[in-house]
Write a protein that binds this DNA or RNA. Structure first.
Lengths: 372, 372
DNA sequence: GAGCCGAATGTTTACGTAAACATCCTGGCC
DNA sequence: GGCCAGGATGTTTACGTAAACATTCGGCTC
């Protein structure tokens, strides 16, 4: 009876665990619907204690090979998988990072998230994603709240957009890293060198002999967009060039096309620096339609380095961001906080950008094109 | 002493919770690093039982307003957030869905995932993502294993690519839904109507008077790619047209460009159906470079309906997939299993596609262009 | 005014895992 | 042959939450 050997009667108990038609099933809509086998059931089947099952499951302690095999067989038979909730409760960690992004399908977002997911996987972490409805501080905060109620050890905010450190209701003690330079100083941040990228783009066009460079900006409430616009203006001013009124886009090709038609109609326009590649594609579209040749009449530069940039017509000169490095830096910075408990509030990392010159930019036209 | 009033000494205990330099921190690398306040601490501070805190936390039971306020104040003071692991352990549910994808940043993937994330959010679920390294069965299975050890209630496999139902080591009882028609019949599946899309595209070109339609296929081990290729061939054969040897791409614009140069060099080519829009962009690039006019000399059709398609040059005729609907259907199908425990193995849903005609397609040229 | 109902709140317990501690057993040594 | 070391395994306990059950107390009915 008290022998530590097999206890078939407990095995019998385990057998009663069933998923369907349990009378209590309707007491709560979200009461556990299916009952996965637990360590206790595996233990009963293998004729060992649940602690031994735990040891086998973790592969840590010494377990006699014969015992181990018996446990593994029992696990296989029952389809056992460790209960993550219980483990996490025990450990206080989920080995999971949260990611907050807005419009996940956009270039910068999806590539950053992909890089974050990969870097996290390399470190043994999984990633939980929340896509916020709008970049408003309220929605971002709501997402933070949602995620902080989820099972995460740390939080990556891919682009805070219009949120500021003050408006973010971050739970105390939750390690955070932000991909937005506005948070430099208050939260650990990783940012691409937006200003340098814009400067490179504008300088490239000036070096080609263009008198000035027009600009299709991103949304006003986006900090990366503003950084690019500011650097564009600074570069022109530093060079003593006239600064035309920037046109306003919203990152999409559609608005690029819309404002591109205005640019195409203005014979003074010979060089355009676009807030991102999608916008540049729209501008190219409008220029083609208006019969203005690229780069003979107008040069166009984008920003981001989407994979399609090389195969637009003409292939687009653009400022490439290293999304992979941004993603891995975000994870690295976050995990240093999560694992080592380091306070990195003041830290930030700037990831360099790279100007890739393709056929969409060329020397300024010798004389004003066509009419005028 | 035994009075149910305030117990400041316990508040003191809570105050000792610190994150740095705890001597036990080095016993295990992953031992809980920071200690969030628990219900018990909130209860002590508010002078109530932890059960009352739980009630307030859930907002369910009747709690006297004065008591509720006191608890809420205590929560705010301590920065309390419910422990998800404990909740999940209680409930047996994380209100989280797992997503397995390959190359998250690609159009179809990122848009489907975005839709899944949004649909899940609408249902109160969060999404955990695993990006598999390669679409090989081994890697997908590894990802499944990884995720099933995570905290998920159900699993979405965005594209199984080369994996088959047999090669997927799915944990028993884990609800799954797959966005891949190969799994129709074995797992609940949602698929775009690939065949119909390809048929529409090819028929559109034939209707424009093209003698036949060349094809740049996707990777051989991708089922959606094969469906499109098969439907392309069937449509040509049904129409009694010659079936040229398909060229092989890998979904990228780069290979579209590479094989596009072959197509551009062949004066017999007047119509090209590409496996996806990126490939089509590469083909357009090659055609432009070779001086072949689109659509005057060659018509090009893509597949997917990326947002940039409208602003390529010329704007690309393409078969649009309704990624948003695919995503929401995936979630709907999955949640029916998760919540109601329904077995939907045999179920599948086909999401219709739509041909969007733009300027990249036009009537077949009257006579062979140029040389020949 | 006694009894009773029900609202408000407290107490006990289980969820599955794994650390800490306890026990058992085997084999080597003298 | 007995003793002890140490490996193998079992037992107890805590993690934070919330359901189930228990208790208290105020007010209402007859």
């Amino acid at each position: 009876m008290s022998s530590p050997g097999r206890r078939p009667e407990i095995t019998g108990e385990a057998g009663t665990v069933e998923t369907n038609g349990a009378p209590g099933a309707q007491t709560r809509g979200r009461a556990r619907p299916r009952t996965a086998p637990s360590m206790a059931e595996v233990a009963a089947l293998a004729g060992v204690s649940s602690q031994t099952v735990s040891r086998v499951s973790m592969g840590l302690d010494n377990v006699k090979p014969a015992t181990r095999d018996r446990v593994l067989a029992a696990m296989a038979e029952l389809g056992y998988a460790p209960n993550t909730a219980a483990r996490a409760l025990r450990y206080g960690s989920f080995r999971t990072l949260g990611v907050i992004a807005h419009q996940l399908a956009r270039t910068g977002e999806s590539r950053t998230v992909e890089a974050v997911v990969e870097a996290a996987r390399a470190e043994g972490y999984t990633v939980t994603i929340v896509d916020v409805e709008s970049p408003s501080p309220d929605d971002v905060s709501a997402a933070v709240t949602r995620l902080s109620h989820q099972a995460i050890d740390g939080l990556v905010i891919v682009r805070a957009e219009s949120a500021t450190p003050d408006t973010l209701a971050l739970p105390a003690q939750l390690p955070v890293v932000v991909s937005d330079s506005r948070f430099v100083g208050t939260h650990p941040a990783v940012r691409a060198d937006q200003s340098e990228g814009a400067r490179l783009a504008v300088q490239h066009l000036l070096d080609l002999g263009h008198r000035t460079v027009h600009h299709v900006a991103g949304p006003d409430d986006s900090l990366p967009a503003r950084s690019r616009t500011d650097a564009w203006r600074d570069t022109l001013e530093t060079a003593g060039r006239p600064v035309p009124e920037p046109l306003h886009g919203d990152w999409t090709a559609r608005t690029g096309y819309v404002v591109g038609r205005e640019l195409a109609a203005d014979p003074d326009v010979t060089a355009v620096f676009c807030a991102n590649d999608e916008t540049a594609a729209g501008v190219l579209h409008a220029l083609h339609e208006a019969g203005r040749r690229v780069p003979d009449d107008v040069s166009v530069v984008g920003f981001d380095g989407i994979t399609l940039a090389e195969h637009l017509w003409p292939p687009l000169t653009t400022v490439e961001q290293d999304f992979a490095r941004i993603g891995s830096s975000l994870v690295a910075l976050l995990l240093r906080q999560v694992r080592d408990g380091v306070d990195l509030s003041g830290t930030h990392e700037t990831v360099p950008v790279r100007l890739v010159v393709r056929e969409s930019t060329g020397p300024a036209p010798r004389r004003r094109p066509a009419r005028s």
